[in-house]
Design a protein around this nucleic acid. Sequence first.
DNA 1: GTCTATAATTTGATAGAC
DNA 2: GTCTATCAAATTATAGAC
Lengths: 188, 188
Amino acid sequence: MSDRSAKAEEILDAAEQMARTGGYNGFSFREIAKRVGIKAASVHYHFPGKDDLGATLAKRYTDRFLSALGDPDDAGTPPGELLRRYVQAYRSALVDDGLMCLCGMLGAEIAYLPEIVAAEARRFFERNIDWLVRVISRMPDTVPAGSARAAALRMVAALEGAMILARTLGDQGIFEDVAKEIFPRPKH
Amino acid sequence: MSDRSAKAEEILDAAEQMARTGGYNGFSFREIAKRVGIKAASVHYHFPGKDDLGATLAKRYTDRFLSALGDPDDAGTPPGELLRRYVQAYRSALVDDGLMCLCGMLGAEIAYLPEIVAAEARRFFERNIDWLVRVISRMPDTVPAGSARAAALRMVAALEGAMILARTLGDQGIFEDVAKEIFPRPKH
DNA sequence: GTCTATAATTTGATAGAC
DNA sequence: GTCTATCAAATTATAGAC
């Protein structure tokens, strides 16, 4: 468990909303402070530097995301349902939150990020791919052995790209058009 | 033709390199000035405001991108070759330039952009989709009529997402893994 | 076209009182 | 934990000399 104060969580909430709209430079201590009703100096009490805040933010995002997915090896859940759950996690980020994927945005600007933030962005995708590979490996009739990873990469790429497209053009239907056809196809 | 001075083009070159690494907040007048060997105030002579510079940058990027694609209706070029050329445009942006897609980054942060910049980011994707729809419509054996647009959206999404993934994980092979299987499949 | 000078604002950050 | 006060640096931008 992460033993963070309620105020620290509030700070992360505000920072996340801004970072998922404008990236790492999209949030500032002053704007966070204003939103949570304290002063900027007080934010530094909870998070010493912006890099700490950013890394914690990305870690919390990843942990929550993976937690929503559940165990990829759970024999009680069919792999097809797990893949639908994966798509739903992205849909929820875009539609329910009305925001972009935090680590997608951070990943795009990774060359300008402090290393501890960059490392968390990388970890998000590594864990995502691991999770998908485990699920897809349970579907031997759909994907040739060994290419589970390629199938996982295609899913992640399609969903991240679909978020950008839907967001840019202001049309959530675009996300659905892409999501509809991203599942690994049966071997023929 | 755009009648811009050589110095204006230099400014755009510097700004593009930074924007394709850190987004709209990833470039500044001072840093541009330093790179092209003038002072920040002089940059304002060429581009009155940052929004002007950003909009011009996105427009130049879009024009060059579409120019590299060529005429989607050119009967002398098979549609399959045109689609390979489309993938190559993304590959070149990632591998040759070593940078992200400018409008992908701008699109992700569109909610925080000045309207004239946001409009150009939207235009990039609208024109990309139009171009792809025209090409895919020339391949009636691969896609059911009417779903050419959905097929186009899937290609754009996959390529934008593949760039992010490859960039974040520092592995260009990831781009290739995704690109390999994004072409519309034959009807069966 | 480019410069100096300067303004107004924002940024991440620290010291020290309460 | 939060505050005031303050800082150094960076930001976009303008006025006016050359």
